[in-house]
Design a protein around this nucleic acid. Structure first.
Lengths: 191, 191
DNA sequence: CAGGGTGAGTAGACACTGTCTACTCACCCT
DNA sequence: AGGGTGAGTAGACAGTGTCTACTCACCCTG
């Protein structure tokens, strides 16, 4: 009846993205998503055999959006590798703090099937770019290790900042100084 | 009847600690804990008004254990600040990777009441020590910011390593190189 | 054009969860 | 001696994810 909008499968994902953005991860029950999509609680099963699969599809949308934001922010940027890394880092942190529910979902491995996330198509290229840029800023270091460390750094800041721990311990009320410190540590302080 | 062992309250926490260690966070249902403690599903309510409160008490045990491990590893250590920081970092990572369920619980803020965790008594002193040591290794930097960055770094590594992302991207099969890279980034490479 | 098959959605059941409430009952204190 | 209190029990309730039997529109083939 109302399938002209592209099918139930896509509609369920859309509803899920809106829901997690507006109300957080705990609102993403299978039955609530079905309710908001206007179908019975058994309907999603036709398209997603299990709850995990549906949540994974929703999270996948998050990874895609994040990768798109990163690509857009760089654009045809001709800035220095160091500045481009700072841009990427800010995009990630901004995404995590703006879309808290989605970011939480994206790393709730107990709710996701990692092989349904399409990381190979979205996140891996971004990480390759990260590694390349890091290698150009610090030709002396092991680029893969340093890039991995930087990624973990950003993720940790996003997590602990959202959780509120870092505001207490650092006394700051803005992530920016922390981000600067982290970038300086990994990439050197010369600008 | 069998309260000679110290009361139901303590027994529930013990059962919870064992359970999360053995089977992970998702096994920590209120009713399962009550079952394993040999009481009815309503009994815990006498001691913990809500599920969150019980989980928080279990997580608190984790924070206490972690702080104790850190203190024990340092002991009356007279090593350099840099080496003591490395020790603390290894203790944290080792704890996170060994007690995965407990570590996950400790940072699942949706399952915890942060004011029931006793962080002020356990974690804050550790962070103060961290800040002090960082300040001695890098007297030029803002110690609080750099310590916060380092903490987030460690947390991010623990999280992403457990999740498996970093093995893929860095190609390593051991955390040690990553930890070394992170420590060098924050504290300088000279030993 | 008739009729069988298939795929999508419905509706109800099941076991499980956390919370709430009424109840028992041993124990203690005046 | 007897009332009150605190701890634990047992059942109800709404909510969850999964499974299964069912309807029913649609298409494809004969």
């Amino acid at each position: 009846m109302s399938e002209h909008d592209g099918g139930l499968r896509a509609r369920l994902i859309d509803v899920g993205v809106d829901l997690v953005t507006a109300e957080g991860v705990q609102a993403l029950s299978l039955r609530e998503i079905a309710r908001r999509a206007g179908v019975s609680h058994g309907a999603p099963r036709r398209h997603f055999p299990t709850h995990l699969e549906l949540l994974s599809a929703i999270a996948r949308r998050g990874f895609e959006d994040l990768a798109a934001l990163g690509a857009a922010a760089l654009g045809d940027d001709t800035a220095s590798p160091r500045d481009r890394l700072a841009t990427l880092a800010r995009v990630y942190l901004d995404f995590a703090l703006t879309h808290r529910g989605m970011h939480e979902l994206m790393f709730r491995h107990d709710l996701l099937r990692s092989d349904s996330l399409g990381l190979r198509e979205t996140s891996l290229p971004v990480f390759a770019l990260l590694t390349d840029l890091v290698g150009r800023v610090r030709p002396d270091a092991d680029a893969r290790l340093l890039a991995g460390s930087l990624l973990a750094q950003l993720h940790g800041i996003a997590q602990l900042w959202t959780w509120g721990s870092l505001q207490l311990t650092t006394g700051a009320d803005d992530v920016e100084p922390l981000l600067r410190t982290a970038l300086d540590a990994h990439l050197g302080t010369e600008r």
